[in-house]
Computed example of a mutant assay.
Amino acid sequence: MSSYYPIMLRLEGKRVVVVGGGKVSERKVSGMLGTGADIVVISPEATAELQRLASSGEIDWKRKSFSAEDLGNAFMIFAATNDYDLNQSIRRITRNHQLVTIVDDPEGSDFHVPSQMQRGRLSIAVSTGGASPKLASKIREELAEQFDDSYEDYLDFLFQARQQVLKEVKDSTIKKRLLSAIVSSEFLTSKDREGDFNRLYEEMKAGT
């Protein structure tokens, strides 16, 4: 099989259609909440959680059977019903510019949703190419233990420090040294990252 190309997608303002109202669809929808995507669920029935999300306005639930018109303007499509033939028919009528995943046919899908963990700005995604979602989840849990909650504040610091370095530091050597230094274990565990960063910056400037 061809290898997949990992990518982080900005879904804000884009229409995502999820066909199916069961637990699998619920998981797919839950993973997209907060992305700003226009999430539309197509299904005569839906789980209690999907109904709650529809009632709160977080998603749009079309309480109906699927029809080809439902895919109009869709950027991304999840064929997530428990009907293999229906899922395949959804695949056949998608257009070339639309991305589709079929929950019971990984090989026929354009993309797979990886097992993901989030620590603020840090996102770690694990995929087995559809071979074993269970293994992907297991690896994700192991990584979650390694990259604990402390990384949330650390990533915020790295973001702010990097913006400052790129804006203020003109010397390319100092810039490179600073950006390398702040990803060290000393800065991860520091109780005063901003103070340590400013002191290091001044020392480097003094040494030039």
Rank of each mutant, 00 (worst) to 15 (best):
D149F: 13
A74G: 01
L143W: 02
R63V: 05
I59N: 04
T128S: 04
P114H: 02
G13T: 08
Q118A: 12
R95W: 09
V41E: 04
L158T: 09
S150A: 13
T35Y: 00
F78T: 00
Y201F: 14
K175Y: 14
M8P: 07
T208F: 14
T189P: 10
A37W: 02
I90C: 03
D148I: 07
V29D: 01
N82G: 05
A79S: 01
Y5P: 05
I124G: 06
I77F: 05
E26I: 05
D153F: 07
F159C: 15
A161L: 10
I182S: 09
S56V: 10
D148P: 07
K138I: 03
Q51T: 03
P44K: 02
V126R: 04
K175V: 14
F78S: 00
D85A: 11
F66M: 05
Q163C: 11
L50H: 02
F187V: 08
L155T: 15
L158W: 08
S184R: 12
N96W: 11
E69L: 09
N73D: 09
A125E: 03
D153R: 07
I59Y: 03
S185F: 15
G31W: 05
K138C: 07
E26D: 10
F187Y: 12
R15H: 04
S185Y: 15
G34R: 06
Q116H: 10
D85C: 09
E194T: 11
Y84D: 14
K167Y: 14
E69K: 09
G22M: 06
S190A: 13
G31F: 05
R91P: 04
K170H: 12
L188A: 10
D171C: 10
V103Y: 03
F147M: 07
A46H: 02
Q164C: 13
E202R: 15
F111T: 02
K170I: 11
N73E: 09
F197P: 01
A125R: 02
S127G: 06
D171Y: 10
D196C: 14
R162N: 12
S56N: 11
R199F: 14
L158N: 08
S190C: 13
S43E: 06
Y5M: 02
T208I: 15
Y154F: 15
P6D: 04
P133G: 05
L33E: 06
E152K: 11
F147H: 03
R162Q: 12
